[in-house]
Design a protein around this nucleic acid. Structure first.
Lengths: 344, 344
DNA sequence: TGTTAGCACTCGAACAATTCGAGTGCTAAA
DNA sequence: TTTAGCACTCGAATTGTTCGAGTGCTAACA
């Protein structure tokens, strides 16, 4: 559909615009060494490209800037190859070299290195622990009415919540109950825990524990709203570096979205297909992200994508570099997690 | 030192400037109903106030704005009384009305209500749990080399960390150790835990556990770096509402400080004397906060200040309102915590 | 002696006019 | 098909002008 020359011009326009942030004119283009024809020729081609919707003018006699369609084409077909420097690779590696004790730290660090290497805002989502399995449950009474319920997963993750104990239960009952849980439910995925608690163990419980059902309800609630996994951000303030956001009015909605965390969390959680995905401008569903692109990559252990890492920046983003960095971090992170899970 | 009339003028200037953000001129002032003298008189007084350092001009023929010294005087002596509306009081109360299950949620909510009522950025620091006491320790083995160490405090707080188990220990040893810990150390303040582990229980342990000292080391490290307590922010983006920060260059350092969290954390942690404290502009030690005021209040149970809540805003801040709101939230929070601790 | 009216002066903000340069589209010649 | 040339457009930057809100100072007044 597009001629080779048009492709070349489109690519050079976008590359240049990404670098400079300024609309690109025909004369500027004609001076590039990759381009051998005159500015007039380029003007003709640009007129065609504009008609096709790949580029736009900011005003009637301005140079051209890429449209969202242009970026989309660029991302899908024109990405210039990009290699990381040794130093970059080293930096990434060093993040994952240390022995990991805490998953959260690891995710935080991943986000940090991402924003450091790209100068954009980065986001990292920890692995869902819905899929992780129950290792041990523990209930520590604090006083007559309350206790802390603690759930340890096979991945070493700990969840805890304060629960109210029905007055009909005493410490002995509590202990008995916990023991039965641990005997019968160890190894069960957290996802299925609720169901199994209702079906498999309910009978035994009712035999041993007075008033099991009321406790069950409390516990269910606890397990049902498993603290949403944390989202880790880094380089939030990097958003302000971008000249397109030099106007406070334009950053405000963005920072609101970021501060809210919830929307971004859902967005990333949806990302389950393997690999890198790019959402440009209005392709993003969230209002306030019209001028942004979000690039996400999943990390996985074995075949199963566990979570996502992402970069948020202006549509005029260094796609090539970001994708390369993201891929690298995702794969190093996957490797690190594989080691981690394998050791469990 | 200052005459009554000067005080009046100073107060009205500051009140007006806080409201409008615009330099206040003599004519504007003379039109206020509280002020009965002519603009020329006011000009004379303002010249004096300026010479004394309480107000400043932004340029040679501009109205006056308060200097930091002026704000300081205002905060110390001229604060107009301020009462909360019923609705505000109600809002605050409703935050603390619900049954609290998690301290962190409570702090988060406190921060939220603060920023909601003031439209500034708010910060809440949870109670140190160094002072809380050990309720139960638990070690859950994940595999041969690693385990999760869990510490539950009497306040229902749970800390956990993944630790490496020396190969010389087996499951039995582990259990024995944990039992001894729980027998001997329950009720010990976390602060003293390390010491007691070295002194009181070491002997018993060495008798029962092979290789106690190497385990001890690992555990010590774990307990020694008790996850810094979290700082809760709310309304970060409110900073951008302030006209004095309409220039991105000026907000940038501020947002950096906020994103970093660490500096702010330390600043608040230092705040141990009871009551409200106001730091204006350069009184703040952190670079980047020259144009800000930080108002902190402590909350306490009994006589002991446990933590702090704070509002961060421009020096041109609604001091009176903020202090009133802060006091109210602090006292309601204190009451809520008292109930909470009492029930333990 | 303290207060005020009046006056000359200053400065920033807002606006209009002008220039400059980078860009365009179109036409005609190579 | 390509390109040189030309007329035209528009935004950004610069300059000048006006306007209003402010000042300090002086002289008159109570």
């Amino acid at each position: 559909m597009l001629t080779d020359r048009q492709l070349l011009i489109l690519q050079v326009i976008i590359d240049d615009f990404i670098r400079s942030g300024q609309p690109v004119g025909s004369r500027t283009l004609s001076k590039k060494h990759q381009i051998a024809f005159s500015s007039a020729t380029i003007r003709n081609e640009m007129a065609d490209l504009e008609e096709l919707g790949y580029i736009e003018k900011t005003h009637i006699s301005s140079g051209r800037v890429p449209s969202e369609k242009g970026y989309r084409y660029y991302v899908d077909h024109l990405l210039p190859p990009q290699r990381l420097t040794r130093a970059d690779i080293q930096k990434i590696r060093s993040v994952f070299a240390e022995r990991i004790y805490e998953l959260e730290k690891l995710m935080q660090k991943s986000a940090q290195i991402l924003s450091e290497l790209t100068n954009y805002t980065s986001i990292a989502l920890g692995p869902t622990f819905k899929e992780s399995k129950l290792k041990r449950m523990q209930i520590v009474p604090l006083n007559e009415q309350t206790a802390v319920a603690i759930v340890v997963t096979d991945t070493g993750h700990v969840e805890n919540r304060v629960v109210t104990i029905p007055s009909s239960m005493d410490a002995g009952d509590l202990e008995k109950m916990v023991n039965i849980f641990n005997e019968r439910l160890a190894g069960v995925p957290l996802m299925d825990l609720k169901e199994k608690m209702e079906t498999e163990v309910a009978d035994v419980m009712r035999r041993h524990i007075r008033n099991y059902d009321s406790v069950l309800n409390t516990l269910m609630e606890t397990l049902d709203a498993p603290e949403e996994e944390k989202v880790f951000f880094a380089g939030k303030a990097n958003m302000l570096n971008q000249p397109e956001f030099s106007d406070i009015q334009k950053v405000r909605p963005l920072l609101d979205i970021i501060e809210q965390e919830k929307d971004i969390y859902r967005l990333l959680r949806k990302q389950t297909q393997k690999g890198v995905r790019v959402s440009i401008g209005h392709e993003n569903e969230l209002r306030g992200m019209e001028n942004c692109s979000l690039i996400t990559a999943t990390y996985s252990v074995g075949d199963e994508p566990l979570g996502a890492i992402a970069i948020l920046g202006p549509t005029r983003m260094e796609y090539s570099r970001v994708i390369t960095v993201l891929n690298r971090v995702a794969s190093d992170l996957s490797a690190a997690l594989a080691k981690w899970y394998q050791s469990q």
